[in-house]
Design a protein around this nucleic acid. Structure first.
Lengths: 131, 131
DNA sequence: ATTGGTGCAAATGCTTTGCATAAAG
DNA sequence: CTTTATGCAAAGCATTTGCACCAAT
């Protein structure tokens, strides 16, 4: 993967932000340093960087995807109302009203465990490509 | 919530399908019983039913949302290639190549734990609405 | 010099919405 | 009879893509 100015700055800014920005939020930030950059470049680079495992693409909550420059293992809280994503810093606790609260002030009422992989059909397709 | 023919059949078909269909996949199935139904009706009802907690909206993997008529607690495997979603039936196991395999034949290479709730800002907005 | 990346604008595709009509309670 | 839902077509909006030009190796 070629190191371009755009790619470097997109990665740098995403790593700096702790807000799990959407593509257009990141675009606004990057534009301050590269005023002529295109939103298409931001999308293309986020895709490439995510394929390369250098960033994470977050697909939950709302219509827009969000991105995370922190690839160390950690959990997220998603606001079901506005789609905001935060890192979970402490283990959630049950409070007096039986709601679960974490250090960020979120009221948590659900948790999801989800696995990611390749289904049998796509495994076959992958094998055909290799052979 | 008013019980219409459309709503009833959409719920019935979604509960019958174990494939976690997208809105348009479900539309194709429902159309066999209600040939004049509109895709907009499918979308509107899936939204209403999901708000009412009668079905689940799945927002991971790919561009299209998927829906699940089974609201009992269970985990999902998502294919990162094609977006297919399956229920996890057994606890994933590590095989000889250090990949994780489950009963559905998926090769699992990642797991995500995610919490859902309300962020502090949206909690304030909710309180204002009530008062 | 060659390959891959960028900027722009147009296209795509899933989802939502406005509006007149129809059905439910 | 009043309210809520439907069907249709049009609009919305995030994301992707074609293409000519540019930059990195």
């Amino acid at each position: 993967m070629r190191i371009t100015n755009q790619r470097e700055i997109i990665l740098e800014e995403l790593r700096r932000l702790k807000s799990h920005p959407t593509a257009d939020e990141l675009y606004e930030v990057v534009k301050k340093r590269l005023p002529r950059i295109s939103i298409a470049t931001v999308y293309r680079n986020l895709e490439r960087l995510s394929e390369a495992g250098m960033i994470h693409k977050l697909e939950y909550g709302g219509r827009q995807k969000r991105f995370d420059g922190d690839v160390t293992p950690h959990c997220h809280v998603v606001c079901v109302k506005c789609g905001r994503v935060s890192d979970v810093e402490t283990v959630p606790e049950v409070d007096a009203e039986h709601l679960v609260v974490d250090s960020r002030g979120y009221k948590i009422f659900d948790g999801v465990i989800q696995f990611e992989g390749l289904c049998p059909k796509c495994q076959l397709l992958e094998e055909k490509k290799i052979n």
